[in-house]
C-alpha cells in the first residue's frame, strides 16, 4: 500500500514472511526443534538439586546470568535475521532489543518446559523451581515457571512462537524510538502474517489466551528489581563477574 515509502525488504507476502521468521527462529533457538520431539532429557537427581541449592547466592546468580546471556545472544541473532530489522536505525535496533530481548527469552523457555513434571531444561537436565532456591528470589522464579507452564499449555507451533517473538521485538510502542512509523510498518507486516497463519491453521483462539503485554513487562521489571536487590547485597559481584552483555542490559 506504500510502494515508495517501504523498502524492498518490507514488501513480502505474508506466507513468505512467516517462512522467513520460522527459519530465523529455528536457526537461533536452543534446544533445536528436532530435539524437542520425544525428548529424553533426564531430570536432576535429589543430590544434584541439593548441590545447586548449596551454591553460594553470588555463584548461582552468576551461573544463571551466564545462561540468560547465552539466550539473549541467540535472540540478538534472531533479530538480525528478521527481515527488515537491520534496516531500522542502529539506535532503534538497540532500543527494541534492550526492551524486548528478555521477553523473547522468557517466551522461548516454554519450548523446553515439561508440563508433566513442571520442570524446565537447565544446563542439560530438567529442573523444577526448587533448584533455584539459592538465588533468593522465589517469587520471580515462581512467576517465570507460571509463565512457562501457561505458554506450554497453548501448545504453540514453532511458526507461532517465531512470529510471537518477532512481535515482542518489533514493537512500535517502545519508548525512545527515533523512527516509530518505520517500526510500526514492520510490526504491521508481522502482525498480518501472524493473523493469516492463525486463520489458516484455525488457531485464532490463541490470541485471547496469550500472556498480556503487561504481564511480560511486569516479569521483566521483577527481574530488574531482583538484579538491583542482588547488587545491594553483593556489591561488586555484578561488575566483576557477570557477563558484560547482561550488565549492559540489566545493570
Amino acid at each position: 500500500s506504500c510502494p515508495h515509502a517501504c523498502p524492498q525488504a518490507l514488501r513480502v507476502p505474508s506466507e513468505l514472511l512467516t517462512q522467513s521468521v520460522l527459519l530465523s527462529h529455528r536457526a537461533t533457538c536452543h534446544p533445536r526443534a528436532e530435539d524437542l520431539q520425544g525428548h529424553r532429557w533426564a531430570t536432576f537427581s535429589r543430590e544434584e538439586i541439593c548441590a545447586y541449592q548449596s551454591q553460594p547466592t553470588a555463584e548461582m546468580w552468576q551461573r544463571c546470568a551466564r545462561r540468560v546471556t547465552e539466550a539473549i545472544e541467540r535472540v540478538v541473532e534472531f533479530a538480525k535475521r528478521l527481515r527488515g530489522f537491520l534496516e531500522l536505525s542502529q539506535h532503534d535496533q538497540i532500543v527494541l532489543l534492550k526492551a524486548g530481548a528478555m521477553e523473547v527469552v522468557l517466551v522461548r523457555m516454554c519450548r523446553a518446559f515439561d508440563a508433566a513434571t513442571r520442570t524446565v531444561l537447565f544446563e542439560g537436565k530438567l529442573a523444577g523451581p526448587e533448584l533455584f532456591r539459592s538465588l533468593g528470589c522465589p517469587e520471580l522464579v515462581a512467576s517465570i515457571f507460571d509463565l512457562a507452564q501457561g505458554l506450554s499449555a497453548l501448545r504453540c507451533s514453532e511458526s507461532e512462537l517465531g512470529l510471537l517473538s518477532a512481535l515482542l521485538l518489533v514493537n512500535a510502542g517502545r519508548p525512545w524510538l527515533q523512527d516509530r512509523p518505520r517500526v510500526a510498518r514492520l510490526q504491521g507486516h508481522l502482525d498480518v502474517a501472524f493473523r493469516v497463519l492463525l486463520r489458516r491453521t484455525r488457531r485464532e483462539g490463541l490470541l485471547a489466551r496469550l500472556p498480556s503485554p503487561g504481564r511480560l513487562r511486569a516479569l521483566c521489571s521483577q527481574h530488574l528489581e531482583q538484579v538491583q536487590a542482588f547488587r545491594r547485597l553483593h556489591p561488586g559481584v555484578v561488575s566483576a563477574a557477570f557477563p558484560p552483555l547482561y550488565r549492559e542490559l540489566f545493570a
Binding site: Q90, I94, V95, P244, L245
Partner: peptide, 17 residues
C-alpha cells in the same frame, strides 16, 4: 545510546555467526 550499549552495538554490527 550506542555508547552505553557497546556490546549490543558490536553484536549488531558483526556478521552472522
Amino acid at each position: 545510546l550506542q555508547e552505553k550499549h557497546r556490546i549490543l552495538h558490536k553484536l549488531l554490527q558483526n556478521g552472522n555467526s
